[in-house]
Design a protein around this nucleic acid. Structure first.
Lengths: 212, 212
DNA sequence: CGGGCTCTTGAACTAGCTCAACCGGAGTGG
DNA sequence: CCACTCCGGTTGAGCTAGTTCAAGAGCCCG
């Protein structure tokens, strides 16, 4: 699930500071690694966004997490990755070999903190998927994105409605309808020709609606 | 989420082997600790079962995980517990102070492995809650319980239908109906006056139904 | 200009929920 | 010992939130 939401940038950098880096560029939709692939690298998003997801045999998909600028992902303690991971948009990523991190007690401490943060986010998401209705899910999603993208006053969503739907366990039409309703009620504004830029007009109301 | 499903008993014991233990007894429904309480202890289930759960303001509940005999829970890297944790049934638990575990590189390594196992289980559960239907959820639950309780040939569920429902994100009636259907179709048998003992008659079929 | 995306909106459908009744076992008290 | 109640589980009937199916609009790109 590898969300680094609650980890300070300092921490993020620290985990990997002493290792050598290689920068990579991925186009939207391109896979960074596949589920069960040998977990040789750890990654950090420099630009763009990444999703990690699991898929059932018949194609149903669950997005486990989005990794935004600064987030670290691909950290495994087993031999293989537990997810498929793909670029949500054109994305720049840097990566370090995993060996650089092992054996070092300090690094392990940081890994533990990162993993715990990911676990915490996953647990929060379990509650959302198990017990919240569509309105609450979308409201919580917008607040999450707002808190993770510091960018002034508006959220530039890097992902499609389909990505959001698969993250929230909803149909894409439902996501669209809820956003329309929030817009009509004046809680948010939806801007841009692709409807991907969102301004939160009434954060208090959105918090109420998210049922946290 | 602290499920220790994929961790061998050796590992479990090792995490805490060198520390002093205190045994405790809890009656069904009794809280072991509350959400946001100071995380002073780490626990292991000796007998019975434990659930950890989050609750929304209006009472909706999500059970994040069940901890069965041998499982370790309450391992936090922050200052406070992230869950309320309660005895599912009359339960015996032992606990160690948290200090005994910190500073020791070996212990931290084990904690990292445990936390990763918990994260992995949580991720699996996200897919279940986000994308599986009621039949698939119940089938997956039965298989999970089967793999975690080695007990010969039948599963003695320690939890109520309400607990199962809140774990699977379903209504209690739905859980009951799915179990009845599985029974009628000969996939399982449901035994005992309280209907808590289950025999898996056709594991292959159950695997298919679980859609993993 | 045309084809392929993504997003939105409407209308019909359905999986699962809610509400309600009922059943059986365990505990309690007369 | 029986009567009563409580609690967990099952079953039925109706309802509804969210899905599915279908159509259309705007945008990008060759």
């Amino acid at each position: 699930m590898l969300v680094s939401q609650n980890v300070r940038p300092e921490d993020l950098a620290m985990v990997l500071e002493d290792t050598t880096w290689a920068a990579c560029r991925y186009q939207r939709g391109q896979s960074i690694y596949e589920e069960a692939e040998s977990a040789d690298y750890v990654y950090q998003v420099i630009e763009g966004a990444v999703r990690s997801c699991k898929t059932l045999a018949d194609g149903r998909r669950q997005v486990g997490a989005f990794h935004l600028v600064g987030d670290i992902f691909g950290l495994e303690s087993g031999q293989v990755y537990r997810f498929r991971t793909q670029a949500v948009d054109d994305t720049v990523i840097r990566r370090a070999t995993r060996q650089g991190l092992e054996g070092d007690a300090l690094a392990i401490n940081r890994m533990l903190r990162l993993t715990t943060a990911n676990l915490q986010q996953a647990e929060k998401h379990l509650l959302l998927l198990g017990r919240k209705n569509s309105g609450e899910r979308v409201a919580a999603f917008l607040l999450e994105m707002d808190s993770r993208m510091t960018e002034a006053r508006s959220i530039a969503l890097p992902m499609t409605r389909a990505d959001i739907a698969d993250y929230l366990g909803l149909a894409i039409e439902t996501v669209s309808r809820v956003l329309s309703t929030l817009h009509k009620e004046g809680v948010i504004s939806v801007l841009g020709s692709d409807h991907r830029r969102i301004v939160i007009r009434d954060k208090g109301r959105l918090s109420e609606l998210s049922a946290d």
